[in-house]
Amino acid sequence: MKQSVMSADGPPQRAIDMSGQAMPNRSPRVQQSIHGAGEKRRAPSLGHLEAVAEDESTTVTHEALETESPVVEIDNFSLYYGAKQALFNVSMNVPHGKVTSMVGPSGCGKSTLLRSVNRLNDLIDHVRTEGSMRYGGMDIYSRNINVIELRKSLGMVFQKPNPFPMSIFENVVYPLRIDGEKRKNVLMEVCERSLRGAALWDEVKDRLHESALGMSGGQQQRLCIARAVAASPDVLLMDEPCSALDPIATAKIEDLIQELKGEYTILIVTHNMQQAARTTDYTAFMYLGRLIEYGPTLDMFTKPRCRQTEDYMTGRFG
């Protein structure tokens, strides 16, 4: 299981000075792992932060997470694109019924981790994984798992709205169509419920049979959420759902996330720190393929335990 580093002291617990030497208050285990970090690849511009990121194989997980019941358990998960390793021993539990955000600079592996949960990375050639990832007690990467059923339980919303070139109605009921549902009243009912759930019904109820591509970007994204919800999943995976939207559409999606919270477990990747602060219960900070720190959003912003987290959250880099 994951290693938690308990700490009664305030942040930053693991601060090190520019020369890479450990400060006196560091725990012996962490101190040990600092040595040898210098030879590894190093992005020159990031200075002292790099030293911490490169050597850490442990994640600082706040105690608050231990009281939550996990839906998705990620344990020592690594992922390779061919020879290139994209995720390094990530361990985190996604708490049930909560909104958890993943933040970090571009290319840190947030989206890769998200796409590993519903095994969307299967679509990419030469992807290899290590470690385990469990959903509802089942090993997601086991040979026997029914990937189709797994994906139906884990709805996904993408960075760019991607409604199909069909009518609004057909988009929403697509998850039912692929299950062979033909009854008009069932389809209509699910369509209305899902669109209401995505706060879109009033805007589109008069043009359900028009092309979905005629909607605005924000409406399209809410349609995609409605489509994901129509499959009645347990978990919603959102990959930067607002990055292609204007502030008003973003606000609507954020409101929607608040409404969906509780009914669904939401795991959201975001570049928008304010969004993470406003809408989420827990925040995971990732850097260079590693999960650095994971804890309640408020604590992550106000008293992070890692120097890197603090630097990123306060906008000093990334």
Partner: peptide, 25 residues
Amino acid sequence: NSYREASIALGATKARTILRVVLPT
């Protein structure tokens, strides 16, 4: 590719994705 990903992520098989989304598009 975003159409294929959307369909696969909703739990469609590859065949259904091709027949229902890719080919009609």
